[in-house]
Design a protein around this nucleic acid. Structure first.
Lengths: 350, 350
DNA sequence: TTGTACGCGTTATCAA
DNA sequence: TTGATAACGCGTACAA
């Protein structure tokens, strides 16, 4: 077992100084061709690679991005990570992933451990608990320490940082407009409670579309589900509520759901009640994941382009890290990128 | 913007030496209570935290695990990451994630960048291309440098390292036994090409079960699909092949598929051909993911306990890292943990 | 009780 | 053309 070799060891072996080795390896023309040759050959033989940690310490930058997401077993978030990873690899950055698991405490802990020198900046999506508590001190502290943050999807408007969001309002409008265009007039909404920003925005888009088409906004058609962690019980409860929605609104002719699970559940309930999709009820979901593509019937969805979003977020962060011209003052300019959504039409709509 | 504070700055401010500060903060009884008080108060005020990078360099360990997986948008792999993360957080380790995207080159690059000091050890699942090429030099080199590897799921037997695998053979037997128990006699298998180890093992389990029940192994009932990256075309091709399987084997009364997608596809094709599930055809898949739980009908599956697998892998690695008694010689003892599978019965079987 | 010196691995600067 | 030294931030053995 040949341990990792260092400059010092090479220097000792070849009986030259450490700095000579260092320069020779970087092909400095301070060094004679002879020595360069010798050193490089030896280094190659022992496959020398500079130690990242030492470089990080010296350069005061780690070339590592910290990513904190609420949940990884989730189509959208894992697509975002894929996008971040892709750009990071291209631009020679590493990615450390922390999961908040929707918990405020874990989010804080994860951020604190990473902020102590392990990374150069954060890309994160805020946990539900944090959104609920509205306690944002950890974000502010991180930013105050000079560590940039890029928030995506679940963002906090008041925090001064770069943001990348999905065009939730427009996306929802697209969905509802499609349903209206198909002749639906009693369109139900299945959403989350309002403290989840994306649920709120998608609800807004839903209402905007109705209003713009002079259709009434009927509160009875709006179901806001408590978004607990997924469990068997939860699923039954969800189905129960959706079934109730259908039964109390016999004239319901379409459903717009703010995520895949709600949409698939709506289809399941509709089928159970003997309704045919898309003839009796048309359904559109948000997030174009595996569930939508393989549901029966296949689900029309609003695609968020999570992969692209991740790429944009990573570029935003790395750009800021590398333009380290230290504007320093209060007049930092932050961007908010909006990623367009796309309507993917499948069998659940006409 | 108050930049991260260091021992040096505290020392300067309080007009004491760096080591005094260091000791005071670690509550050394070499230091007077007065000084300790003063230093600690100051440190608290400026929320001093030791720099991880400096510690890593000093201790020659990073307390960071490198995880390389082929794909993140994948139920099983993301569950494994969740498990790894959980243990890592508990045991005060960070997790750097690298995606090989099923590519040999990316796997190599990712490992090389991480191995140069960024991490203490690897947890990884081998990419398909690597399995196909059978080029394992990067694993051997890493291990030779004294960096431990834990392989999971897609492993390589010849490599000397700890391993955690799913009990693929037994799991498949469970599935097929269940189908046989339900009276099925013409059980089709939809699997991947053989170079994917798990596909091969699951095929083996399928055959074992048949043989043990004195049922014939009929090659016509075995479909081995080329496992390309998921694309629209690929899906159509898959459906075509599965449909052909059904049509050429009218007596087919059950399908065992080595993943969710194949299983769901089988159900879709069966439905299209007017076959009822589970009355005409029963279906079982491998991997108990979202797709299975929300398919129609819901899918009976073999659950792999990916979360638990991840936890075990992380514990195995960290145990090895921390028992650094340097056995050094050839007589290292490596373990292979086998994670039991579980049959989750749902609507697609009787 | 406090401070000095050293080393972790690297690079940059300056001296030889 | 080469080498010594300092610095990145920390902890610790040893000296004062």
């Amino acid at each position: 077992m040949k341990r990792k070799i260092t400059l010092k060891q090479i220097a000792k072996e070849l009986d030259v100084s450490i700095s000579t080795v260092s320069k020779a390896l970087r092909n400095s023309n301070e060094i004679s061709d002879d020595t360069k040759e010798k050193v490089q050959a030896f280094a190659r033989l022992y496959s020398y690679r500079p130690n990242n940690i030492a470089l990080s310490l010296k350069n005061r930058k780690t070339k590592t991005i910290g990513v904190i997401i609420p949940e990884i077993v989730h189509y959208f978030f894992s697509m975002v990570i894929r996008g971040i990873e892709r750009v990071a690899l291209d631009r020679h950055y590493n990615v450390i992933v922390g999961l908040s698991n929707e918990s405020f405490d874990k989010e804080v802990i994860n951020m604190e451990t990473l902020a102590n020198g392990s990374i150069d900046g954060f890309i994160l999506s805020v946990s539900k608990e944090t959104l609920f508590k509205q306690d944002y001190h950890h974000f502010n502290e991180t930013i105050n320490q000079g560590m940039p943050i890029v928030m995506f999807d679940r963002i906090i408007n008041e925090i001064q940082c770069d943001k990348v969001i999905v065009d939730d309002i427009e996306g929802s409008k697209k969905a509802v407009n499609k349903l209206i265009g198909n002749g639906c007039t009693h369109i139900a909404l299945i959403s989350t409670k309002d403290y989840v920003s994306v649920g709120r925005l998608r609800t807004e888009g839903y209402m905007n579309a109705l209003i713009e088409h002079q259709l009434p906004v009927n509160p009875d058609l709006i179901l806001k589900v408590d978004d607990k962690l997924e469990s068997e019980d939860y699923l039954e409860e969800l189905e129960g509520k959706v079934e109730q929605l259908f039964k109390e609104n016999k004239n319901l002719d379409a459903v717009f759901a703010v995520n895949e699970l709600y949409a698939v559940t709506a289809m399941k309930v509709a089928r159970k009640l003997g309704l045919s999709i898309p003839d009796d009820v048309q359904v559109i979901g948000f997030t174009d994941g595996v569930l939508s593509r393989h549901a029966t019937p296949t689900l029309t969805t609003i695609k968020q382009h999570g992969h692209y979003l991740g790429e944009q977020a990573a570029n935003l962060l790395i750009d800021r890290l590398e333009n380290d011209i230290e504007i320093d003052e209060e007049d930092e300019v932050y961007q908010t990128l909006v990623i367009e959504t796309e309507l993917i039409e499948r069998e659940s709509t006409k």
